Simulated scan of single mutants.
Amino acid sequence: MSELSGQAFLVVGATGALGSRIALRLADLGAELTISGRSGEALTALDVARAHAVPADLREPDAARSMVAAAVERHGRLDGLIVAAGVVAFGPLTDIDDDTVDDLVLVDFLAPLRLIRAALPVMAPGGVILGISAVVAEKPLPNMAVYSAAKAATAALFTAVRTEARRRKVRVVDVRPPHTETGLAGRAIAGEAPKLPTGLDPDAVAERIVAAVLGSETDVPSTAF
């Protein structure tokens, strides 16, 4: 039997460079998957074995609850939640307008919060909730102030809820990879990315994240990559 045979996972942000790789690897390990992203066509194109696709916009207040409910209805249980969705913006704080701030906070902070809030009460004992924040949660950067702040808030959320989740025998993992070649910087919702050094290989980062899912870690800092 495969290592995750019989376990049900919800992968949010499954059409992204990391989310797609994580979803494919979890499927290879035998997990039953519900995968989510904004584009139904992109989810279908992933061709993840046996995956249940649930398109959703994380900016919508009820998206998290509906994704979790769909996963539980499909599989009858929920053993894992992977939050791999995110957006980024660049530029001085004075140049970031309210709409951009709203999207950064909604997707990078409120969506993980809502997903955890929806998933934790229905998560099977021994389950895992894993979120991908970013190295900027450890070292906030100029011209990425709002993004850094949203990611730092998310990292704090995971740290705080980790103790609450222990009572339910659920492990909460915060992963903060260094800059990775996911293409996210080229899809910024505002501003232009500065010249960045070559990032990490997304295949290697995804493999490290899956190792954290399978292991016993609760915190995977940038230095762990």
Score class of each variant (00 low, 15 high):
138 E>K: 06
61 P>F: 06
120 L>P: 14
114 R>D: 04
210 V>H: 04
46 L>C: 08
186 G>H: 03
39 S>W: 13
188 A>I: 09
206 A>T: 13
2 S>R: 15
195 K>S: 08
1 M>Y: 10
132 I>K: 01
189 I>N: 04
108 D>H: 11
141 L>N: 01
74 R>W: 05
160 A>K: 05
140 P>M: 02
220 V>I: 12
209 I>F: 12
58 L>Y: 08
126 G>M: 12
120 L>Q: 08
40 G>A: 13
93 L>N: 11
26 L>G: 09
20 S>N: 12
119 A>R: 09
11 V>I: 14
55 P>Y: 06
114 R>H: 14
117 R>H: 13
86 G>C: 11
170 V>A: 00
64 A>F: 13
180 T>V: 04
146 V>W: 05
43 L>V: 04
108 D>F: 05
79 D>M: 00
90 F>P: 10
105 V>L: 15
166 R>E: 15
50 R>A: 14
147 Y>Q: 03
128 V>I: 12
214 L>M: 14
163 T>R: 13
140 P>D: 07
99 D>M: 04
27 A>V: 09
223 T>H: 05
112 P>Y: 09
107 V>I: 14
130 L>A: 15
28 D>P: 06
28 D>L: 10
124 A>S: 15
206 A>N: 05
18 L>V: 14
53 A>N: 12
27 A>D: 00
83 V>W: 02
220 V>N: 09
175 V>R: 05
95 D>S: 14
191 G>L: 11
173 V>W: 01
92 P>F: 11
121 P>F: 03
160 A>L: 04
4 L>Y: 09
127 G>D: 01
149 A>I: 13
79 D>H: 13
96 I>E: 06
51 A>D: 07
168 R>Y: 01
83 V>C: 00
156 A>S: 15
192 E>T: 12
15 T>K: 11
97 D>C: 10
223 T>D: 13
103 D>C: 09
195 K>V: 14
96 I>C: 10
213 V>M: 14
51 A>K: 06
199 G>Y: 07
4 L>N: 10
120 L>T: 08
89 A>M: 08
68 V>K: 09
147 Y>G: 01
211 A>Y: 01
217 E>W: 01
64 A>L: 09
203 D>W: 02
135 V>P: 00
126 G>W: 07
163 T>Q: 15
167 R>F: 10
220 V>T: 09
216 S>N: 13
200 L>F: 09
7 Q>N: 11
17 A>W: 07
107 V>M: 03
193 A>R: 10
193 A>D: 09
97 D>K: 10
164 E>Y: 05
73 E>N: 12
36 S>W: 02
63 A>Q: 08
192 E>P: 02
211 A>S: 12
65 R>F: 03
223 T>E: 13
49 A>V: 15
222 S>H: 08
99 D>T: 09
91 G>T: 00
84 A>F: 13
182 T>G: 04
150 A>C: 08
121 P>I: 07
161 V>I: 15
190 A>W: 11
53 A>D: 06
37 G>D: 00
95 D>V: 00
211 A>T: 14
144 M>S: 06
41 E>W: 05
139 K>Q: 11
146 V>S: 02
29 L>G: 10
63 A>P: 07
119 A>W: 02
22 I>F: 04
155 A>E: 12
212 A>V: 08
107 V>K: 08
